[in-house]
Design a protein around this nucleic acid. Structure first.
Lengths: 107, 107
DNA sequence: TCAATCCATAACCGCTGAGTTATGGATATC
DNA sequence: GATATCCATAACTCAGCGGTTATGGATTGA
C-alpha cells in the first residue's frame, strides 16, 4: 500500500487525468458524457481515469438514473500540500541551522 | 513543451526519484555516490533520476573534481503550490453566482 | 605513468499504464 | 416489450519508463 502523497502524485501525473480533475474543479459536477465530450478520448478511457481519481479520493461519484455525476474533492489535495510544506520546512530548517552556526561562529 | 506543473508531477510521481529529492531536502548537498549508497539501485539509475530532477529544476549540480554534488531547489516547487491553490480557488468560486450562471450556460 | 575511483551515457529489456474496441447491465423512451 | 442511451468492465495493443550491464572520460593517488 502506497502512502498518500505517492498515490496523489501518480494520479495527477497524467495530463489527461489532471485535465479532467481541473475541469471538475472549475465547473463543478459533471456527468461522464459531458467529461468525455471535452476529453478528446473514448468514453471507456474517461471512465478508467475517473476510477483512478476516485481511488485517490480526488473525486466523488453520485448515481442518478443511468448517468453518473462526478465532482472534485479538493480536500484530498491536503497530503500534497503537507508534503510540499514539509520539503520547504526541511530546507528552511537547514538554513536556520546554518544561520545558527554562523551566529555562534561570530561570537 | 509541457507546462511547469505537468513536468513537476511527472518528475515527482516516481517514488525512488521523490525519495532522492526528499533526502536532498532533509540532508542537504550530497554526492552521487552518497545518494547511490541509500537508493537501493545502481549508480547509473541514480544518475538518470538526477538528470530528470535537474531537467525539472528541482536540483542543482556542482562539479568538484571527479564528484558531482547535488542539492535541492525547493523554489522549483512553486508551480505545484500555485496549481494546488488554484484548484482550491476554483472550488471556492464555484459558489459565485456569475460563475455558476456561466457554467450552466456552457452545458 | 599506471591504476583506481567517480560519474555519465549508451544499449538493451521487461513491465506498467494509457489508449483502443467489444460487450453487457441498467435505465430511459417509444 | 422493444429500442436506444449511459456507463463500466474486459481484453488487447503499444509506447514509455525504470531498471540493468557495459563502457568511457575525467580526476585522483601511488
Amino acid at each position: 500500500m502506497s502512502n498518500a502523497p505517492d498515490q496523489l502524485f501518480k494520479t495527477l501525473a497524467d495530463p489527461t487525468r489532471r485535465a479532467i480533475f481541473e475541469r471538475l474543479c472549475r465547473n463543478g459536477e459533471q456527468t461522464v458524457g459531458a467529461l468525455t465530450a471535452h476529453a478528446g478520448i473514448s468514453q471507456p478511457a474517461v471512465s478508467k481515469h475517473l476510477a483512478i481519481l476516485k481511488q485517490a479520493g480526488l473525486v466523488h461519484d453520485r448515481h442518478e438514473g443511468r448517468q453518473t455525476h462526478y465532482s472534485a474533492q479538493v480536500e484530498a489535495l491536503a497530503p500534497l500540500i503537507d508534503w510540499t510544506s514539509q520539503m520547504a520546512g526541511f530546507w528552511e530548517s537547514r538554513f536556520d541551522d546554518l544561520e545558527d552556526l554562523l551566529r555562534r561562529m561570530d561570537q
